[in-house]
Design a protein around this nucleic acid. Structure first.
Lengths: 375, 375
DNA sequence: ATGAAAGCGCTAACAT
DNA sequence: ATGTTAGCGCTTTCAT
């Protein structure tokens, strides 16, 4: 018996009368047999392809339904080369995905990305950014149509590898070095910092301090240099404290250090999410009132700053908008429909002005704080 | 030419001399040809199977490396029936995945689950829980080895369908109704509520109010009934306000209602994450001091409650521990190694006692609040 | 110790 | 309008 003949036999409907595949689950051939058509017709009917009469289509669909037929995603992926899966990298510190400070940002960004991907028929797979080793295995164990990288590190081997094998990569955060991403989306961090420093100065700040990080990622670098440039422009001596932002405890200590300096600032911008509460607590310890003695702004996506005492002005990077844009760009690249959109997209930020950064009576339109009870 | 002959030809190394596959990427046959061995040997060498001499193994590996060979995940999945992918469902409200109130819990749970899965060689795919329709498509478009369901709703068709087709499902939260999950993990919500009500009573609470939700999920139901039981036991009239927890604004309003009642409570437990700040703000509006006039506890995973003014006592459900356990249970089921572990696991909660729930001087070992500055 | 061949379940090109 | 057939790239018996 030749291979072809054997083939023939195993594909004939003469086998066990449908419904009894070794697997237990019905396959496309069971449906074909039960519906009295060929497997092509089944495939076409189920996928809306071909030009079948509606009668055939609905009949096949009914039979498939009755048999509880579920197409094999693996087979389809192998055949079409498309998996409908998009990788989402998360930076890992040690064993843990996500950093402490990125948490709220990441969660919101991922939420939006998930939603946007689902709306276009894709699902996200959470994957670790390159770690020491072994992470590579998991990357080659999943068939991806594309990948989103959050805060790509300089020469990330995974990104390079993916791009080299023709898989589109879109990053959240402009790529450092010469990393060859397909497209990227980022905030205009420098403009954001300039804007908020101007806002603080307008509110009467004479010496603005900066609570920043010791790491060299783009966000930290751009924000810090924008601060230094601003200081130089207005002729203020920089007052900077830096700390390892991935350490959940270091922030409070650094906030304390900043307010303990001889050149104590009368306003502070904190680059990371928890800095607002850290600084508020530090101010209390030093008997400083916010906003009377100290103006405060921090970069955060957390809604808690709307109801702290006092409410704290925050810079929002709008991670939801970024997540959505990243996904649109990526899917456009995957499907080859993206010629229209620019591949480098700079997104605006939102300064949500609250009590902590204003010495004069509130008259902003954004997030007006609730009136305080009489003291 | 018979099918078998053609087969033969296309598989011989006589074709384009390796490296020039249509695809662009090297396949297993390119590696075999370049290494001068059969594809079987390549497969075995790369996967550590078979009994090959170390020389062959390392030679094949070197060649594969040189060619930049990446095995096709789709082909492997089709062949082995294992994808290494685990679904993670998120409840969707309207278009958006996650609810507002579940946010921090979910983020932490997902983080732990991701980490645990990765450590065992699996990756998580974020998938929507059953929505009206269309969600089904995405489910059958991805090959899953198993699925984690967070807060399964009563008779969820996706869960039923998955279990029916032999895919293990482990839920976070005990399944309502007769949902046939493989295993589940949940907190002992009733014990948690009893414990925290006792704690409030010990701190001097005479009338404890409850801020709860209007939805009928297990968490809300169990927590509320535990509260009612406790009230009955100690002879207190229940003071309850319920609101639609998925509405980000409704919480503040409900907190206000609770404190505006004629039978105003002198202590409140809020079931949802934002309730702490909501209640704190409401207390301020009514001129109530915390903890002097009002004792406060809320269920939250957020660290901000450590540095609010005053710090707020929280009940943590330990989502990280749950996420990890859920994944272990699921992978055990997938790999058939789970006979040891119980399939229903109740996990303890942590009451993190802070200033807001204590009238007497702090003398707890947990999370001692920082000393306040002299007024 | 190594290789040949079968085939996972599907889709698409090509008949009819 | 529907059916036949050839693979997608791998793993896995089974022969040698």
């Amino acid at each position: 018996m030749t291979a072809a003949e054997k083939h023939q036999v195993s594909r004939t409907a003469a086998n066990p009368p449908a419904g009894s595949r070794l697997n237990g689950r019905a396959g496309i051939r069971d449906v074909a047999a039960a519906a009295g058509v060929s497997i092509t017709t089944v495939s076409d009917a189920l996928n809306g392809k071909g030009r079948l009469p509606d009668a055939t289509r609905s009949h096949v669909r009914a039979v498939a339904e009755r048999l509880g037929y579920r197409p094999s995603a693996a087979a389809r992926t192998l055949r079409t080369g498309k998996s409908g899966l998009i990788g989402l990298t998360v930076t890992t510190y040690g064993e843990e995905p996500f950093t402490f400070t990125e948490f709220a940002y990441f969660a919101e960004m991922a939420r939006a990305a998930t939603s946007a991907a689902l709306a276009r028929g894709y699902a996200l797979v959470i994957l670790p950014a390159t770690s020491r080793h072994s992470a590579f295995d998991i990357w080659s164990n999943v068939a991806l149509d594309g990948t989103v990288v959050i805060d790509p590190s300089d020469h990330d081997p995974v990104v390079t590898e993916l791009v080299r094998s023709g898989i589109p990569v879109v990053s959240d955060g402009r790529p450092a070095g010469s990393l060859p991403v397909t497209a990227w989306v980022d905030n205009d961090h420098e403009a954001a910092v300039r804007g908020l420093l101007d806002h603080l100065a307008e509110s009467g700040a004479r010496r603005i301090g900066l609570l920043t990080g010791t790491s060299t990622d783009t966000y930290t670098r751009l924000s810090t240099s924008a601060y230094l440039d601003w200081c130089e422009r207005v002729g203020q001596d920089p007052v900077v404290e830096a700390y390892p932002a991935h350490d959940p405890c270091a922030g409070a200590v650094a906030a304390d250090r900043l307010l303990a300096r001889p050149d104590r600032p009368d306003a502070v911008y904190g680059l990371f999410d928890p800095n607002g509460t850290d600084l508020l607590a530090a101010a209390r310890r030093y008997g400083m009132r916010v906003p009377d003695d100290l103006l405060l702004v921090c970069c955060s996506e957390s809604t808690v700053y709307a109801s702290t005492e006092p409410p704290i002005t925050t810079l929002s990077l709008k991670p939801g908008r970024i997540g959505n844009t990243v996904i649109q760009l990526l899917i456009d690249a995957i499907e080859g429909t993206g010629s229209g959109r620019p591949v480098e997209q700079v997104m605006p930020t939102d300064l949500i002005v609250r009590t902590s950064s204003q010495r004069r009576p509130v008259r902003t339109t954004v997030s007006a704080p609730r009136p305080l009870p009489p003291e």
